[in-house]
């Protein structure tokens, strides 16, 4: 068993123990007719605050506050535990009332975005690594511009040398829209190579109507299509790796604010303040 498998097993077991303990305490509080919702509410609030501290830790890398990877492990498994405590707190029922509904929706969004983020950060990096030439996300527009210029140069050269407009026509009708388009994260839904495969198929078809010299130029364009595929995939994948945090983090802050309001309301109207 390798390091990651051992760690996953250990942390999963710890998380399950935490869930069993939480459930046991919740049952005991119920049997003792104590206000279990108050206790689970505060436990949940504390968990959410502790989970949110991870982002704060990331802002302080110069302090010896344990490695960020240890914090992330805590974040992941305490996150699962918080989902369970949330279920206990809600009594395994759907929320009622405006504030509870808003709070529950926020919690679900944060939890789901967290789970999605976990899968994204585990699945996409190997795919990016094997996609092709490594690219720095911030420089992708520059690479894209350079590639487009190169393609246009190939087409212009081919036209000039052959005296035919065949390549120009094909470029205008098929290649230009493909090379000018910026990929979106939706590319990752389904086969990310579908666009490039379609273009390559059309290029193969078009080669029937070209002479040997132009077929050679088409070969160079095929390489450019392959590079564009890599650009598109890396752009989409790296963007998604950043985008999910723009959901997870702002909603976490919203969740904390609404949770504090909810706690205050519960205590005031419960006669405890």
């Amino acid at each position: 068993m390798n390091f990651f498998a051992r760690r996953r097993l250990r942390n999963t077991l710890l998380c399950l123990v935490g869930m069993v303990l939480a459930y046991g305490l919740w049952r005991m509080l119920k049997i003792a007719l104590r206000p279990a919702a108050i206790y689970t509410g505060f436990a949940l609030l504390a968990l959410v605050l502790a989970l949110a501290l991870f982002n704060g830790r990331k802002k302080l890398p110069f302090l010896p506050l344990m490695k960020a990877s240890s914090w992330l492990q805590f974040h992941i498994y305490a996150g699962w535990l918080s989902v369970f405590v949330f279920l206990l707190h809600s009594g395994f029922r759907l929320p009622t009332g405006m504030l509870e509904t808003i709070l529950s929706v926020l919690f679900v969004i944060v939890a789901l975005s967290g789970v999605a983020g976990l899968f994204i950060t585990r699945l996409l990096p190997p795919a990016i690594t094997r996609s092709g030439e490594p690219l720095v996300y911030e420089r992708i527009p520059r690479y894209q511009h350079a590639l487009r210029t190169e393609v246009e140069g190939i087409v212009e050269d081919a036209e000039r040398q052959s005296g035919s407009t065949a390549m120009g026509n094909f470029y205008m009708s098929t290649l230009a829209p493909y090379f000018q388009r910026r990929s979106s994260v939706l590319l990752l839904a389904g086969n990310p190579s579908r666009h490039s495969q379609r273009i390559l198929g059309q290029m193969d078809e078009y080669c029937r109507y070209l002479d040997e010299e132009l077929v050679g130029s088409m070969g160079r364009l095929r390489e450019c299509v392959e590079r564009k595929r890599n650009l598109d995939f890396q752009n989409a994948a790296q963007r998604l790796l950043k985008l999910w945090l723009f959901v997870h983090i702002p909603f976490t802050y919203s969740l904390i604010i609404v949770a504090l309001v909810h706690a205050w309301v519960a205590l005031v109207y419960g006669g405890r303040l």
């Binding site: 890398p61 302090l63 010896p64 960020a68 990877s69 990096p125």
Partner: peptide, 15 residues
């Protein structure tokens, strides 16, 4: 710095 290289400590994914 206490705790060693910041780059290692800052990486959340053990990469």
């Amino acid at each position: 710095l206490l705790g060693g290289p910041a780059c290692v400590r800052a990486c959340p994914h053990d990469a």
